[in-house]
Each structure stands twice: as structure tokens, then as C-alpha cells.
Simulated scan of single mutants.
Amino acid sequence: MATVIECERLADGDGLMAMGVGRWRCRWLVDVGRWRPSPAEFQAAAAVLPPHDRPAIHRFVREEDRKRALVSRLLKYSLVHHALGMPFHQIRINRTLEGKPYLNKNVNLLPGFNFNTNFNTSHQGEYVGIASEPLCLVGLDIVCISKPQRETALEFINNFTSYLTDHEWNCIVTADSHDGMLTEFYRYWCLKEAFVKATGAGVGFGLQRLEFHHMNWTNISLCIDGEEARKWMFWLFKIDEMHLASIAKGHPEDAIDSFRRTLSDVD
């Protein structure tokens, strides 16, 4: 993997880098904008994947989308290979109906091992990331703070009011500038997406049920339907001037049923 693209590691909340905290807890971040493969190099990278997972890459029309799709799949296979020592051709990654990736249980898994991956398909998005945890739910989201082209920041954010609580909306609109409002909005959005990805709920979960509180974007906490979710932890990172990432970690009991059935151990 490292011979194909340059990888960076995303720090966890304890300040340790991913590879320093154990084989099964990983935070990998790839700047796909810096990888400019020739057609032959792209095909060579795709050939690393098992044959059944290659056609999905070529369904994308745009080169940048194909590149993100390839890197996303390479990260998933590399993570499982790194954590469990499985050769690529033996790895079988499935998805729940809601789109949550999971490893086929017909292998000798570390109890509770699961992973979640996200890649940003925005034309401004330059990063693909993956996160894994051995014994808890994990969700990763990456957002690009893109400025709307045909409307003001407030008009753009107004499109998402049904996904925000009154508290979150007030925090957003009281920012000191339009750029500040956009950044505040994307912070909340990034955290909400990380949570629903961790539980496996996906877009079917009502994001307005989630309300985040923080102290200058540290000590982030979550209330679900007005009740504090004490078994969840969140981190928010600034990747660069245009990109944010968030990580959500929680107890397996909060996984939705379709994803819980894929876990080896939910105790």
C-alpha cells in the first residue's frame, strides 16, 4: 500500500498515532490528490484487490471518483491484512443493507473486530480515511468545507435546518462571519455522520435526534432524544484549511440490529 500512495496516520483522542496503539486500532488517512497514477499504475494497484471487488471501481465515470473508490477498497483490505494477517484473496468484505462494511464471519476474527470507512466524493475532497477498533463501534467522517456558489452561507445552511437542533442552529448562526458559520455547520454535520456510521444506521437515522455539546470543540458530548449518551466519545480534527475529520466511538449495544448480527462479540 505504501508503495502506491503516501499515507498519513490520524491521531486518536489520546494523542497517540494509530500504529502505536495496537494492531487492531487504526486511523489511516490518505491524500489522494497527491497520487497521480498512470493508467498502468492504476491497473497495477487495482490488481491487488480480489477479482470480485474490482468491477465496482470502473463504474465511476470521473477519474477522481475511480481513484477514491480504489483507495477506499485498498485501505479496507490493507487494514484487515494488517490487523488479522489475512492474505488479500481470503478477505471478504460485505455490507449491511444500510451500507455498513463488515468482515465476513467465515474467518477467524478477533472478537468484536469491526471497521468503518468513509471517503469524500466531493470534487474538492482530497482525502480517503479509515478507522478501526477491536472492541467497540467506530465511525469516521471526513468533510470538505466547500463554499456555496449560488447562495449565501446562511441560505445554504438553511437547507439543513431539519437535521439540526435549536441549540446547534443558534451556535451556527451566531458565528462571527459567513465562513465561521460554514465551519460550525460542517463540524456538527461531521460529528453526526460519524455517529450514524458507527452504529450502522446510515441515512435512515434522524440526525435531528442528535445534539452535540462541546467546550471550544473539546470535551464533545452527545445527547440523543434529549438524553446524554455517556458511552460515546468523539474527536474532531482539522486536517487542513478545507477538510475536517471526526471519530465516534461507542458501545456495541448501540449498533442497529442488521449490523449487530455481523459482530462476533457485542458484550
Rank of each mutant, 00 (worst) to 15 (best):
W24V: 06
L164W: 04
F237W: 10
E64R: 12
S72H: 08
A194R: 11
L79R: 03
R187V: 07
N114Q: 10
H58A: 12
R95M: 09
T174D: 11
N170K: 15
N216W: 05
A18L: 10
E133S: 14
W217E: 10
I247C: 05
G202T: 10
P55F: 01
M17V: 12
E211T: 15
L182F: 01
G139I: 01
A248W: 04
R25E: 07
L10P: 00
C7N: 08
T96F: 01
V61P: 00
A245C: 08
E211D: 12
Y102G: 01
K238F: 00
Y102S: 03
L263F: 11
V4R: 11
V21A: 08
V173L: 11
G204R: 14
Y188D: 07
C144M: 08
A255K: 11
A175T: 05
T174M: 09
A2G: 06
F195A: 10
A198F: 01
S246C: 07
A46P: 04
L164I: 08
C171R: 15
E184V: 01
I157V: 06
R62E: 09
F42H: 08
R187D: 04
Q149M: 10
H89C: 09
Y77W: 13
K105W: 03
G85T: 06
F212K: 13
W232K: 09
L164Y: 02
S264F: 02
L191M: 06
E155C: 05
N120C: 13
D166P: 02
Y102C: 02
N219K: 15
H82Y: 12
S264R: 09
N216E: 15
C136Q: 15
G250H: 03
R260K: 15
N114A: 06
P55R: 06
D14I: 11
I247Q: 07
C7M: 14
N170Y: 05
A194F: 00
L10Q: 00
S78T: 13
E64F: 07
P87T: 07
F113P: 01
C136D: 13
F42K: 14
L29K: 01
R54S: 02
L75R: 03
D12M: 15
E211R: 13
C26L: 12
N120D: 15
R25C: 02
R261Y: 08
L97Q: 13
E168H: 05
P51Q: 13
M181C: 11
F113E: 06
D14M: 11
N159L: 14
R261Q: 15
T262L: 12
S38F: 02
V266A: 14
D257T: 14
A255N: 10
H123N: 10
D265C: 14
R54V: 15
L97I: 11
K105Q: 11
T183S: 12
S78P: 00
L244Y: 03
D53Y: 03
F60E: 06
K231V: 02
M17D: 07
T3Q: 10
D179T: 09
A175N: 07
L70D: 05
L207Y: 04
I224G: 02
A198I: 02
L97F: 06
I247W: 01
S72Q: 09
N94K: 14
Y102Q: 05
C7K: 14
A255M: 10
W189H: 00
T161I: 12
V107Y: 05
Y77I: 13
G180I: 02
A245S: 08
Q149P: 00
W232G: 10
